[in-house]
């Protein structure tokens, strides 16, 4: 019994250490965003301080953070909408028509997920540059569509496969055409899958750095690029960048709580059910 109590104590010790390890870095940045510089730069982390909103005011007025926020929203929303439309059609086509090459095509999509971003970036950069679209939001939108499509198709294929075939066949027997059956019968059933794709694709686009870094210019910077420019500065303004980081990451953390069960399935292409 004593031994069992000891292992139980060890278990809780590990869990609590891991809890602190996970939460403290996030908390530190959020707390710093409400601190004046003199409270951030202390040898011993200062727990009690007079909170201020100066950093947030500065982020939105003295830097172009508001603009980055708008750019990121446009890129994330438009690329996600395109991804959802393309992926829904493709995954329906791949699952409901008993195509002979369906598996091959689906595996082809999955391979796309493994191509290193850097080996896509350089050629796309050259092409976007050549057609004069560099510095517009078209570049990042296109790139994010391609990067998100593979997982979206795989995730939705899983949802379409789970729909009982009888449901679609009943609709067809009742005189629906294929597309009518798709709109009226299948789409409402796979709605949770669309929600998962929406959120996972939004977050990827919201967080993506490399493409946006090279395909945008000052006026079209997205949030990660803006934050990278704060970090890249010789002396980091910790108050301001903490505020920017907090505004960017807190929505993601909150959304994360709601979609955790889809993350396993979405990122593993349905190989692991959440």
């Amino acid at each position: 019994m004593a031994k069992r109590r000891l292992t139980s104590a060890g278990k809780w010790a590990i869990l609590i250490v891991f809890l602190l390890w996970t939460v403290i870095p996030i908390l530190l940045i959020i707390v710093n965003s409400f601190k004046k510089a003199k409270d951030i730069f202390t040898d011993v982390p200062r727990i009690f301080f007079a909170p201020t909103l100066d950093n947030y005011v500065n982020a939105f007025t003295k830097s172009d953070f508001g603009l980055y926020f708008a750019n990121s929203s446009i890129v994330a929303l438009s690329s996600t909408i395109i991804v959802i439309i393309l992926a829904t059609f493709a995954s329906y086509g791949l699952t409901s028509f008993q195509l002979r090459f369906a598996n091959t095509i689906a595996n082809g999509f999955l391979v796309g997920k493994l191509v290193p971003v850097i080996s896509m970036l350089l050629p796309i950069f050259v092409i976007i540059n050549a057609v004069g679209l560099r510095g517009t939001l078209v570049g990042p939108v296109l790139a994010h569509v391609a990067l998100n499509l593979p997982f979206a198709v795989w995730l939705l294929m899983g949802f379409f496969r789970d729909v009982p075939r009888e449901l679609e066949q009943a609709a067809l027997i009742d005189g629906c055409t294929r597309m009518q059956a798709f709109w009226r019968v299948l789409l409402p059933v796979v709605l949770p899958g669309l929600a998962a794709v929406f959120i996972l694709s939004m977050q990827y686009s919201w967080n993506e750095l490399l493409f946006s870094l090279q395909l945008t210019t000052l006026e079209t910077y997205t949030l990660p690029v803006g934050i990278a420019s704060f970090v890249g500065a010789i002396s980091v303004d910790w108050g301001l960048s903490s505020a920017a980081a907090t505004v960017t990451m807190v929505p993601m953390i909150i959304i994360g709580f709601f979609v955790q069960k889809y993350i396993a399935e979405g990122t593993t292409g349905g190989a692991v059910k959440g």
Partner: peptide, 30 residues
């Protein structure tokens, strides 16, 4: 516990690097 442990999962890598630049700061880092 799992919900709390999963918090960093959707944070942008560039923000993760900002957070840890601060953690590793030679003078003020935790």
């Amino acid at each position: 516990f799992r919900a709390i442990f999963a918090m960093p999962v959707l944070i942008s890598p560039i923000i993760v690097s900002l957070i840890w630049r601060y953690m590793y700061d030679p003078t003020y880092g935790l």
